[in-house]
């Protein structure tokens, strides 16, 4: 049945590894929701690069949870570029000396070539009438969101809810904590990652509303059926800024610094921004944003720097051992 010769060649290639491929190779270690995005961008970049320099390059992709990928790079995964869900995971790489601490200044928009936000995915017709964050804590509403301790995206969900409560009239830390605590009481399943949560909601029928990235919500509509779900954009949400950086130590070792930098800069070109927008991420380029204005609904967005003083502070206060997330579960049961 199987073409055995092809199998043999593949096996041989696996054993011998890179010596068979003389072309320079970049390894992009990324988080889960960008699989489809980078598949398209890589194709464009490679032909663009070949045209410009005559060099044929290869790009390999590795995807996993954002934190897991950062750990893998620390433990020796030789990724030339890291494209992760949140700045904290790249800060950790900088702490280990894999790249310079000022990495966010080396690319436009603090190293975030695109943004996203957190929206709600509800079942068709929105039977529970969910319009905004405060509808999530109505008595009969079940919420699905992944575990902020194990998923990068889930941390954005949590912070978005917190920020919403802070931004309400008379909102303060105490009220925010009470709101988020109430919200997590409505969570029946804490999956370990964003895609797992989507599957629980869509395929297993758990809960009434899924908190997820906007791009994931678009993808879910596309892949799982626009006739089954609809997207609800809340009044306020967080500006999620996934970041990219060259892992200097690895790129220097491979002699791919130039290529890696060009690759990341390419993300800011109009062509790449268009691909980005097509995949449901909010582009940085105003021109592309204009073209896709209908797709991305206007929503009042706050940044993590504004409300939480940046990722390091947010991580420490909310998600570290004994932090507010732990306290919420300590107190609620």
């Amino acid at each position: 049945m199987f073409p055995t010769r092809r199998l043999a060649v593949l096996a041989l290639g696996l054993i011998l590894g890179s010596p068979l491929a003389p072309a320079k190779t970049l390894l992009n270690a990324s988080y889960d929701p960008t699989r489809e995005l980078y598949r398209d961008i890589n194709k464009e970049f490679l032909s663009d690069w070949k045209q410009k320099t005559g060099e044929s390059l290869e790009i390999e992709q590795s995807h996993g949870g954002s934190g897991k990928q950062a750990r893998a790079i620390i433990d020796g995964l030789e990724a030339d570029v890291a494209t992760l869900a949140l700045a904290y995971d790249i800060d950790v790489l900088a702490d280990k000396g894999l790249l310079s601490p000022n990495w966010q200044e080396r690319l436009p928009n603090k190293g975030a070539p695109y943004t996203s936000t957190i929206v709600f995915l509800v079942r068709k017709g929105n039977p529970k009438g969910i319009k905004d964050w405060n509808d999530l804590i109505k008595a009969d509403v079940g919420v699905v969101t992944p575990n902020p301790k194990t998923g990068g995206g889930a941390r954005w969900n949590y912070l978005a809810a917190w920020g919403y409560a802070l931004k309400q009239k008379g909102g303060n830390e105490l009220k925010a904590k009470a709101f988020v605590q109430e919200l997590y009481k409505h969570v029946k399943v804490l999956d370990s990652g964003a895609r797992g949560a989507t599957t629980s909601f869509a395929e297993r029928g758990v809960g009434d509303v899924l908190l997820t990235w906007e791009n994931e919500a678009f993808l879910a509509l596309n892949e799982l059926g626009a006739d089954r779900f609809e997207i609800v954009v809340p009044s306020v949400s967080i500006l999620a800024e996934p970041v990219v950086a060259v892992v200097d130590r690895v790129a220097t070792k491979h002699g791919t610094q130039k290529q890696a930098e060009a690759y990341l800069s390419y993300l800011y070109t109009e062509k790449a921004q268009d691909i980005i927008a097509r995949h449901g991420f909010r582009p940085r380029s105003p021109k592309v944003a204009q073209a896709y204005a209908e797709r991305f609904k206007k929503v009042s967005l706050f940044t993590i720097d504004e409300l939480f003083g940046g990722w390091r502070a947010a991580q420490k206060k909310h998600f570290d051992e004994g932090g507010l997330f732990d306290q919420i579960y300590g107190a609620s049961s």
Partner: peptide, 24 residues
């Protein structure tokens, strides 16, 4: 995939190990 993973209710020990790793 089947546990629900709610702390103190349906959270298994290996998951806690993974959680710690995620916090580096």
């Amino acid at each position: 995939f089947i546990a629900g993973n709610i702390p103190k209710v349906s959270e298994i020990a290996p998951l806690l190990i993974v959680t710690k790793l995620e916090q580096y």
